[in-house]
């Protein structure tokens, strides 16, 4: 089972690839929109890449609840259980 830190690091890599944001800035307390400047289209790309990477399904309705990197990591952890 991947640790929280491993999921965060993988997600950070995805955010870096999609939006060009330094992976070190992608920390659990950061808001995708307000801190990382990830807009809704980039968020779609991050979600699709995360679904592939972590083998989970993130429904469209759920995406709006993933405000911070921590929210996303927690969702992925739950979905992988």
């Amino acid at each position: 089972m991947a640790t929280t830190e491993e999921i965060r690091a993988d997600l950070a890599e995805i955010v870096n690839e999609v939006a060009g944001i330094d992976a070190d800035d992608v920390q659990l307390d950061k808001s995708f929109v307000d801190d990382l400047d990830v807009d809704s289209l980039s968020m779609v790309e991050v979600v699709v890449a995360a679904e592939e990477k972590f083998g989970v399904t993130i429904p469209d309705d759920e995406v709006k609840n993933l405000k911070t990197v921590g929210d996303a990591v927690a969702f992925i952890e739950r979905a992988q259980d």
């Binding site: 809704s40 289209l41 779609v44 790309e45 699709v48 469209d60």
Partner: peptide, 11 residues
């Protein structure tokens, strides 16, 4: 509907 279209088209 922009976001679902974006998802479908892009992937």
């Amino acid at each position: 509907q922009g976001n679902p279209v974006f998802r479908w088209a892009s992937f």
